[in-house]
Design a protein around this nucleic acid. Structure first.
Length: 590
RNA sequence: UGGGGUAUGGUGUAACGGUAGCACGACUGACUCUGACUCAGUUAGUCUAGGUUCAAAUCCUAGUACCCCAACCA
């Protein structure tokens, strides 16, 4: 049918360019399908919940795998039992699945754990000692620190020339639990005078007597990031090991460890050390920064602990779980990540782009409904008493296939307070004394009067309806054109049918574009009024909304039923408002 | 101070010695039974100073600004 239509040009970026070049040269060989091999991974440490920054990495890695017909692994970089927990493992798996499950064409390689490679890593460490590339150091962390040297001054270790046999014996003792934490470490023998501090005989193993969520008490020595990560990638056959910019300095070490293992090894496995191991390529990219958002796991944890938010899944949190609960879709997050691109330059993305991404997606998918956040009563004076009419309501104008449903109309309605003004400014197209508006999909009404209480507050308005406008269409002239134009259309609810609902309105968690930039303390920019809970009225069809159901409340925004909902007692989170040029103009005008 | 990085409209991102393009935003206007969506138009940029070249965002030199690195964290 449209086979000749050229594929839409994908946004190019430096990673795609690297992969395309690698594929052209068959740098990584071919996969089972005989296509150039591409294998990526997302390697979180299970020490917290995933946030939108991680989503960028997940989308990047899985997107590359998908587009180049490769595979994508989720792998836990669980090498530090002191900080990691099963709770985080479970949450991360769930979030990654949620984000990638409906990602068409993605080949998910599976869930892996660095801790499952501890045995192999240990064997390789022994090999490095034998090759003279590593040694056990008896310095304490404090001593290493004081002897690490400085710019131009080499580090020192009195143990680096210790005989291999002695190191081997000590490493075995370390593993056997014969030494307390901090008393020994295994270090790579590289260069104590390197201008790159990462290369000054980095620690490979440290002693940690802690329970590990996966390996239990099987180990009391744990590999450091640099020693572990390249091996994890190698073992899984990762081709492009994509990480963030701050690991740039670690790249020489990544390569050094693999090279050290491969030293003396051969392609066919002949020789004393066996076959060469796979050497992936580390590539760095700039992590995501968002305006008005703090991304550090440490800080997010603090917000949770201090109860400034209700938890990791608080809809105001930039966590995947928070975004999910707020009503963001995986599709929208992926579109956002695609939209912002990827480079090696640091940048700060405007959060409104994330908001635009959900609006875009929800606009096409969310069923429409009407809700009144701040009700004002309208009495239709010429409506037959006790009469109820069912009118057709278009479920989604963007999706005609969604069809229509019936909504009840009566002589007592609620409209939005903002949609009435007693003394309106120019270009106020809504309801005002003597002014006519359209009630969405219902009737034209004209305001005939205002009701006030003793202190002059408006308590309701009166209006008359035009029976000839049923359904919301103006009566036609003899020539078929609309008889009269009404500029304003407002939403409404039948007072007899509207259902009470709790609605949670969110504002940004921080008041400054870059929280903490001025004072150094992000809490100084914390927004104490980021949550507003109101009692609103919603369409009766929403009384039994189930958690996760997303709607557009027409003219207001997108709302998602919260898990706190109960049958007949729905709770909605406002995902994002609709754009509102009227409100914007009002603010601009003062 | 040593090493490693990065500089393109307001924001983000293309360009790979040959017309600085795209997206978002902003501003106009059109359309509209959501002041939404959609559509059209306008706006505005190569960090600085030299140099090479017919031609420089791109190459060279010297600066400037910002980020990362001296955890037995990742």
């Amino acid at each position: 049918m449209t086979d000749n239509t050229p594929a839409a040009p994908r946004p190019t970026n430096f990673l795609r360019q690297i992969i395309e070049a690698d594929n052209a040269a068959l740098k990584w060989g071919v996969g089972p399908d005989n296509r150039p091999r591409v294998h990526t991974r997302f390697p979180p440490e299970p020490n917290g919940y995933l946030h939108i920054g991680h989503a960028k990495s997940i989308c990047l890695n899985s997107g590359l795998a998908r587009d180049f017909a490769g595979a994508f692994n989720l792998r836990f970089d669980d090498t530090n039992p002191a900080k990691e927990e099963q709770e985080y493992v479970d949450a991360i798996i769930d979030d990654v699945r949620w984000l990638t499950n409906d990602y068409e064409g993605l080949r998910f390689g599976g869930v892996f754990y660095a801790s499952n490679y501890f045995g192999q890593m240990y064997d390789w460490a022994v090999e490095l000692i034998r090759k003279g590339r590593a040694y056990v150091c008896d310095l304490s962390p404090d001593q290493v620190s004081s002897m690490r040297g400085s710019v131009g001054v080499p580090a020192q270790s009195p143990f680096r020339d210790r005989p291999a046999e002695e190191s081997l014996r000590l490493l075995e003792e370390m593993r056997a639990g014969k030494h307390p934490g901090g008393s020994h470490s295994l270090r790579a023998r590289i260069d104590l005078a390197s201008p790159n501090f990462v290369m000054r005989d980095p620690v490979m193993y440290r002693i940690v007597h802690e329970h590990h969520h996966n390996t239990g008490n099987a180990w009391c020595i744990y590999p450091m990031y640099d020693w572990a990560h390249c091996l994890e990638d190698s073992l899984e056959g990762i081709t492009h090991s994509i990480c963030t910019l701050e690991f740039r300095n670690n790249r020489p070490l990544y390569d050094w460890f693999i090279d050290a293992i491969n030293e003396g090894r051969t392609e066919d496995g002949s020789g004393p050390w066996g076959k060469r191991i796979h050497h992936p390529q580390q590539i760095e990219f700039a992590r995501l920064n968002l305006t008005y958002t703090v991304m550090s796991k440490r800080f997010l944890l603090q917000l949770v602990k201090d109860a400034r938010v209700s938890g990791w899944d608080d809809p105001r949190m930039p966590t995947i779980r928070g975004l999910r609960r707020r009503g963001y879709t995986a599709h929208a997050i992926r579109a956002f990540c695609e939209d912002i691109g990827v480079t090696t330059q640091e940048s700060v993305i405007d959060v409104t782009r994330l908001e635009n991404a959900v609006r875009d997606h929800l606009n096409t998918t969310a069923p429409r409904t009407m809700a009144v956040l701040r009700p004002l009563k309208v009495t239709i004076e010429n409506w037959p008493a006790g009469h109820t009419e069912l009118l057709d309501f278009v479920i989604n104008p963007e999706d005609p296939a969604a069809g229509t449903r019936k909504i009840p109309f009566t002589g007592t309605l609620y409209i939005e307070r903002d949609d009435f003004m007693e003394a309106p400014p120019k270009k106020f197209f809504r309801l005002a004394p003597g002014q006519e508006v359209r009630l969405r999909w219902a009737y034209f009404i004209t305001c005939t009067g205002v009701e006030k209480d003793a202190s002059g507050n408006i308590t309701g308005v009166r209006a008359t309806y035009d029976p000839a406008t049923r359904g919301g269409d103006a009566p036609l002239n003899p020539d078929g054109t609309p008889g009269r134009k009404v500029k304003g259309t407002i939403h409404w609810l039948s007072a007899d049918h509207a259902v009470q609902a709790e609605v949670r309105l969110f504002d940004r968690l921080f008041l400054a574009e870059e929280p903490g930039k001025r004072t150094g303390n992000q809490l100084d920019d914390f927004n104490p009024d980021s949550l507003e809970v109101i009692r609103a009225l919603v369409d009766p069809a929403l009384a039994h909304a189930t958690p996760g159901d997303t709607y557009q409340f027409e003219r207001l925004g997108y709302f998602c039923a919260d898990k706190d909902s109960a049958p007949g007692k729905p709770v909605f989170n406002r995902t994002v408002t609709l754009k509102d040029t009227w409100a914007k103009a009002q603010h601009a005008g003062g």
